[in-house]
Design a protein around this nucleic acid. Structure first.
Lengths: 213, 213
DNA sequence: GGGCTTTGGTATCGGGTCGATACGATGGAA
DNA sequence: TTCCATCGTATCGACCCGATACCAAAGCCC
């Protein structure tokens, strides 16, 4: 019966943490809910002939900027080893969903790109059913959810040393185009590499992201 | 580097759904956050010599009532097959964390119980680090989070037919003890089996849970 | 320029999980 | 008793993934 995982159906569960106060009960409940959601989403991602790791890789490649579309960046993002990621990528390439081209600047590096089939596959991302669900609650609860989940994630990251990923244009290294000649046509530049960043790239995920401190 | 998974660090990500309205952007962000949390929590649960499935089984056994401490119930709860669950349970028994005893009423069935070592292990549940984190946000955001996550879960369940699990005392079959003789000392009874339910049992998870309709 | 180290990726191996299938055992019904 | 449904287990195989070893390209230092 490997269909989908069930979950607790009640809105209140006073008994789970019977010895604790209301605050602890809430915390316990959050954990339980995340646990269930986790399992459900994992199961959802066995659709379309791909496995969860492959779906996540596909999503990452679509969202990563030019510094991050590499096996190593993906490995850090997923918390997996390079070898593991390599296999995932080979599988995706064999299915015709991505291409792997050697970069010209450094011929060791591999540039990962979505093919048209890959784009089409992303349009059938099983996580979109989750998106449907969250759309319906977005109006009243969306902002709070994002706030809470974000904080949860940060707290968790703080407890384990974890590589930060973030959007290019919010990086402390990002320089807005001030109008001098060298960056004409670009929206800004990376303070680390000095390269121009265009409008598309600047809103993507970068492996070199640094929080403004 | 199989340590822990990274995650997006920014609070705002306008670019992920650049073509969409604010509502869609929120939904996308929720998905991304859940995705990351999912991966992180999964990785957390490889601690203590157990794997995620084993931790989940341990937690379930601790929280399940007498009708639900069985391999079949666990299989439904986890969305796994009986065979798979059987292996998980064997592993837990070999580690001395649970016992498997044949029930007296129906000798086909197996009653799962935590040992003292199992209880002790649960006290070191890696998900408790998540609890620490949620405790800190419980005050301002806990209630909203629970509400949102619960709705998300329900929406998801509705889209896939999924067995409902819930707490005994909130089940539509639960009968509060009205004071007649047969249930003296008990808090109530199960309307399906007719058996008495005591205070401890009534707040546990039951596989036969039915929503009040 | 010759080594040496470092870094990005890949190939191969083996352990472990999990689903599928088949099976044994018990209980219930005719 | 006989058949069948149900609970649970055993066995097999596919697949995921980490570990290790390895190759190729780049950087360093003399």
């Amino acid at each position: 019966m490997p269909v989908t995982a069930p979950s607790l159906a009640t809105a209140q569960q006073p008994g789970i943490a019977s010895h604790a106060g209301g605050k602890d009960a809430l915390a316990q409940r959050v954990i339980l809910l995340l646990d269930r959601l986790s399992r459900l989403t994992r199961e959802l991602q066995f659709a379309g002939g791909l496995n969860p790791a492959q779906w996540e890789a596909l999503r990452f490649i679509a969202q990563a900027n030019k510094y991050s579309r590499s096996p190593t960046a993906l490995a850090e993002y997923l918390g997996a080893t390079k070898g593991t990621v390599s296999q995932t990528l080979i599988a995706l390439e064999n299915k015709g969903l991505i291409t792997r081209c050697k970069k010209t600047c450094d011929r060791r590096q591999v540039d990962l790109c979505l093919t048209d089939a890959g784009q089409a596959m992303l349009a059938r991302d099983p996580m979109q059913t989750l998106e449907q669900a969250s759309l319906e609650i977005a109006d009243e609860l969306g902002a709070e959810m994002v706030k809470g989940l974000t904080r949860l994630l940060h707290d968790l990251q703080a407890r384990h040393q974890v590589v930060e990923f973030g959007v290019c244009q919010e990086c402390s290294l990002f320089c807005v185009n001030s109008g001098n000649g060298s960056l004409d046509g670009a929206d800004g530049a990376c303070g680390s590499t000095g390269e121009a960043i265009d409008a598309v790239e600047k809103s993507k995920i970068c492996i070199n992201y640094k929080t403004v401190s």
